[in-house]
Amino acid sequence: MEKKSVKAWLYLLPAMLFLGIFLIYPLVDVFVYSFEENYNFASQSYTGTGLFNYSYVLRDPYFLQALKNTFLLVVITVPLSTGLALLISVGLSSIKPLRELYQTVFFLPYVTNTLAVGLVFMILFKRTPYSDGFVNLLLSLFHAGPVDFIDGPYGAKMLVLCLYTIWVVMPFKILILTSALASVNQTYYNAAKIDGTSGLRIFFRITLPMISPSLVYLIITGFIGAFKAYSDAVALFGTNLNAAGMNTIVGYVYDMLYGNSGGYPSYASAAAILLFAIVLTITCINLLVSRKHVHYIS
């Protein structure tokens, strides 16, 4: 028996080493960092413990800007992308010819490099002295613009960020919702049809409840994902997000590390923990709200 146990632990050893060193230890450590005041990277020393790091971060205008940006991004993109994905998935499941082709095309953004395609978005939206760019060309058809979406007003920049974020997250949502819709047994629809149920009533009374677990899953992961936005912003506005006024919370954390040869891990830790607290709270609220409205099929 003992020998058997030893063998099992040997099998687990590689995974546990990696997880222990790069996941569990850092998790503990990040809390420690966040309470160590004036941590100096070079000397690895600190002057005291307390909440100073948190109060510093919370008063840092860059952090507040990042907080605002992130919240806006979350509030705008999560409902829009989920709703749009639902519409597209319903459309997809109502057609037969070309369905696979559409599905393949819609999934493409998932397998592309966020940074690379972000560059394309930047070029589409950017206005330079030499060219107004493609989007402004479109706008001029409606006698609007031109607007510089990349270096221009805050609203315009936020708009591009939201659009790109939606573009990036749609494949996953469409995929999940299409397979949820496909797994609804066709006989439910036949039964409803024989009972003379209207299309809208079928959608709201049958389809929506049946796919509600997937929908909740998407909303929760959508919130988490949007709160962690970073690469999309970098792709559009460059690495100096603070200067562009488009930083996100995660961006703030990394900037704190990267900034000044070794950076300020204490501030970064405090900001990361704040982010984690926000995400945890929102997720709990989501779960509580959804419990009342979701029908899990036992």
Partner: peptide, 18 residues
């Protein structure tokens, strides 16, 4: 462990690797 966000542990990993 699946619930631990990358953003939280990356800080220490950065310090460790550095």
């Amino acid at each position: 462990l699946m619930m631990i966000p990358n953003e939280l542990v990356i800080i220490t990993n950065y310090v460790t690797i550095t």
